[in-house]
Amino acid sequence: MKTDVHDCALAAAERSVRELIEAGASNRILRKEYLCDTVVLFELDNPLVARSARAGEFVVVRPALQGERIPLTISDADPKRGTITIIFQIVGRTTMELARLEQGECVPDVCGPLGKPTEIENFGTALCVGGGVGIAFLRPITKALKLAGNDVLTILGARERKLLILENEMRAISDELFLTTDDGSYARKGLVTDVVKELLESDTKIDIVFAIGPMPMMKAVADVTRPFGIKTMVSLDPIMIDGTGMCGGCRVTVGGKTQFTCVDGPDFDAHEVDWGEIKSRKSYYLEEERVAKEMLAKEANR
């Protein structure tokens, strides 16, 4: 991904910024791909976001005019082609509706890039741990770490073989890749934390850990790295609305302080995160989410 363009010479050299923003973004789906049954990739036409996106940032997407705003990580950006890639797991009504859009159609609203970019530097050796669809969020960070000169060790895990996504893409940007599946249907049977633990207990020197995946996985990685005193960053995914710091719905507690994930994060120090609070806050609309999903399923059956 591109670094800062906050520079007049650069901006002028490009097509005029004005022409670029006023051309707008069609958000047309140029490529739609199922990475597995429940994970969909869209490559969207959005030159504006593509040129300014940095690792760790996300977009807010609304799939329908009466739809909800949901955040999705910018998994890749190609400023030359003017496209961004989002990868999402179908979990509820909004992601189901998004998945119904076909190649050639346009996503009504895409806003971004949002969030604080991940702080990338040459740490030495970076361990990147990804689980499930979290691998999609981990990819731009891993890529940026590699570009910054880090040795990158990557561990990817999935429940079963067919749910493991982006294996080849991640292999290409990692110095070493470890794979696990919960059920042993592919590679090593077990959890990503098993490998994290072994690496930490071996002589491998690790300077920083990035762990992104389901909340229990991120918490488990934090618990493994804590006794070793290795800095561990995670990407939190609370419920959001605007994604610009306006509603406070995305509040989390980190180091005893309230933070707004959409503007202060989404990356936070895993050892400081109040995991219980996030778990409970994410469950606030469970009942409504169930109702919505049932309604959509009924519609689909008609």
């Binding site: 007049c8 002028a12 005029s16 004005r18 670029l20 300014s52």
Partner: peptide, 14 residues
């Protein structure tokens, strides 16, 4: 501030 910055706008055609 995120999609484009003020500086970019002021030297990029506005």
């Amino acid at each position: 501030g995120k999609t484009v910055t003020i500086e970019e706008m002021l030297c990029g055609g506005y």
